[in-house]
């Protein structure tokens, strides 16, 4: 029972972090309420995806072969990490309200595109970890025999979900009691770290999979430092830090290059976004002041 509680809570945290932040954002934005429907739709689609992927794990269907599956995982991870960065940029570009932008048709189309981003991000977040949970629960379910074991099984699933939901509610509470500016500053960093972590996992799958026959320079494979005696990923905290914050106790050259590339790209994108916004507001105010010319 303890094992079921642990697995359910552990595997739901990543998805609930993403959903919780998006949900809090939409609750506090005028005109963004509609976005919640996209979250719900994404959760439903994610559950569908999780079931489908769980079936391939169990071996019921083989619509993805071993190699295709690997590419699919790498693709999902990269897409999720890209969508997270895009989501952060979108949140940055909108202040307290979406209402004004909604009146402009071009912005309305842009927002529609962003709703699809929300939808796919939530779908992947729920589907990816959900498939492992679904397979685990199905496997444990098969072992059940007595009434008491069924009761304890469903009880454990409920407790596990409840523990993970605490994170979701903390995010909603935080949104209410901390000023938006601070809430966003904190959650933005959490999202970007999660994005980096997903990107790192994708690159490691690439290194162990398709690049396994390629000989890269030796320093790519060498550990750069070792903190496993302080905090190992096999501990609960180390494991959470690894999946949410890209923590590695023995990173190799490849890991550092990957994270550096991610950080550099995100930094350039955010810098480009703020200069562009500064440029856009200036001509608009000039045009407003001088409508004829």
């Amino acid at each position: 029972m303890g094992q079921i509680i642990f697995v359910v809570a552990r595997e739901s945290i990543e998805a609930l972090l993403i959903i919780g932040i998006l949900f809090a954002w939409m609750s506090s934005r005028e005109g963004a309420e509609k976005g919640k429907h996209w979250i719900y739709a994404g959760v439903l689609a994610g559950l569908g995806l999780a079931t489908l992927l769980a079936l391939t794990l169990v071996g019921v269907t083989h619509f993805l072969g071993g190699e295709a599956r690997s590419w699919f995982e790498i693709g999902m991870l990269t897409l999720a990490s890209t969508l997270i960065v895009q989501m952060v940029m979108w949140m940055r570009s909108h202040g307290r309200t979406l209402k004004k932008e909604m009146e402009n048709r071009l912005d309305r189309d842009l927002s529609a595109a962003n709703w699809w981003g929300v939808f796919f991000l939530v779908t992947i977040a729920v589907g990816r970890e959900g498939s492992e949970t679904a397979m685990f629960l199905y496997g444990s379910f098969l072992q059940l025999a007595t009434w008491a074991s069924y009761a304890s099984f469903f009880g454990a699933v409920a407790i596990g979900l409840a523990i993970a939901m605490v994170l979701f509610y903390l995010l909603q509470l935080g949104n209410r009691f901390i000023s938006w500016k601070w809430f966003f500053r904190i959650t933005e960093i959490m999202l970007l770290f999660l994005g980096a972590s997903l990107f790192l996992t994708a690159s490691e799958k690439l290194l162990n999979g398709y690049l396994s026959n390629v000989d890269l320079p030796a320093w790519f494979y060498s550990s750069v430092w070792n903190t496993s005696h302080i905090l190992s990923e096999s501990s609960l905290i180390g494991d959470l830090l690894a999946s949410l914050f890209a923590y590695r106790s023995r990173p190799i050259g490849w890991d550092l290059v990957t994270v550096a590339v991610f950080a550099l790209v995100v930094w350039r994108l955010l810098a480009w976004q703020s200069t562009r916004q500064a440029q856009q507001t200036r001509p608009q105010t000039q045009a407003a002041a001088n409508p004829g010319g």
């Binding site: 071996g59 397979m135 490691e204 290194l207 162990n208 999979g209 990923e233 590695r248 490849w254 890991d255």
Partner: peptide
């Protein structure tokens, strides 16, 4: 194993091959 950069979910009876870098 994060230290070996491996992660594979296995149903009962399942097995998986994983490459490990030097």
């Amino acid at each position: 194993s994060n230290q070996l950069r491996l992660e594979k979910v296995l149903f009962m009876g399942a097995e998986a091959y994983m490459n490990v870098t030097p």
